[in-house]
């Protein structure tokens, strides 16, 4: 009798506790905190002091939190507000303060901030810091090249960084000739494809990979359309007014869909944009 009563009580407690555990989990899921960690707000020297001998693991933990925060948004296809981006930037800075050799925050910064938040200058500050510390890594300079080339329209500075990146052992050999092959007019889309392909090699986080792949897909489609437009221009000496003309003239079979859910259209200079919120186009203008 007593055993059965105890067993019953025990099972009851287990069920109740599981119910509450999942209830709390759901509740926390629904009204997420608006902060990644309050640790971010603490000035650098104090943060270093507070982590005692554990700055490494603290930075890992903050990184995990940041990825979770961003990942949730990417999964739900929600856009982050400028405040949230600012917070993510602050967290990444703090992570790099705690553990400057940790490459992840720099990569995450590069993959998101300039594109989605237009925070090119801020990213470059982080990257300069990374380049100074990670002297054997070509990536910081590579990113700096890309940012200057793509976002800041500064080919001279961009070339300078590309040279630096190419000089570092381990850099892909085509870097040294890349600068010469790119001209500002047609090169941006191609540079973007190169950049994204490099990034995808680096990434194994599924959420980010998903967003990178989508961006690459969009860029490749734009590149493909622009190429066809050039062909059209060679043939007819004018840019087409609408993409439909490419189909009508048999250059393409149909207009590819925008992975971001918008519609592609042609600007007067023959470049392709999209009506979707393809952040790449919108935020890229500076």
């Amino acid at each position: 009798m007593k055993i059965w009563r105890n067993l019953f009580l025990f099972t009851g407690a287990c069920v109740l506790s599981s119910y509450c555990a999942s209830g709390l989990y759901q509740l926390h899921n629904n009204n997420r905190e608006k902060k990644i960690s309050h640790f971010t707000m603490i000035p650098e020297p104090m943060a270093r002091a507070m982590t005692l001998e554990f700055p490494g693991i603290t930075s890992d933990y903050l990184m995990l939190k940041t990825l979770t925060y961003m990942g949730e948004r990417i999964m739900k296809d929600e856009e982050l507000t400028p405040d949230e981006w600012q917070m993510i930037y602050q967290t990444l800075v703090q992570i790099s303060n705690l553990d400057p050799r940790f490459i992840d925050p720099y990569i995450i910064a590069q993959m998101s901030l300039p594109w989605d938040a237009g925070m090119v200058e801020e990213t470059n500050i982080l990257l300069e810091k990374a380049a100074k510390i990670l002297t054997n890594d070509y990536r910081p300079y590579f990113f700096l090249w890309y940012n200057h080339f793509k976002f800041l329209d500064n080919p001279e500075k961009a070339a300078y960084y590309l040279e630096k990146a190419a000089a570092i052992p381990g850099a892909p050999p085509y870097f040294s000739t890349l600068a010469a092959r790119l001209n500002l007019y047609a090169g941006k889309t191609y540079a973007g494809v190169v950049f994204l392909q490099e990034m995808i090699k680096e990434t194994n986080d599924p959420a980010l990979l998903k967003s990178l792949r989508r961006r690459l897909q969009a860029l490749q489609k734009i590149g493909f359309l622009e190429q066809k437009i050039q062909k059209y221009r060679k043939r007819y000496q004018v840019f087409p007014k609408e993409l439909q003309e490419l189909v009508d003239k048999g250059l393409i079979t149909k207009i590819p869909p925008d992975p971001y859910g918008g519609k592609f259209y042609i600007m007067e200079n023959g470049r392709v944009y999209t009506s979707s919120n393809l952040v790449l186009q919108k935020k890229g203008k500076k």
């Binding site: 009580l9 025990f10 407690a13 287990c14 109740l16 506790s17 709390l24 509740l27 009204n31």
Partner: peptide, 22 residues
């Protein structure tokens, strides 16, 4: 405070403690 959260927390704490004591 969300009253639902506080209730859940209270129940969770008590049931978890009982399990551990059991």
């Amino acid at each position: 405070f969300v009253s639902q959260e506080i209730t859940l927390l209270g129940l969770y704490g008590l049931s978890y403690i009982s399990i551990m004591l059991f």
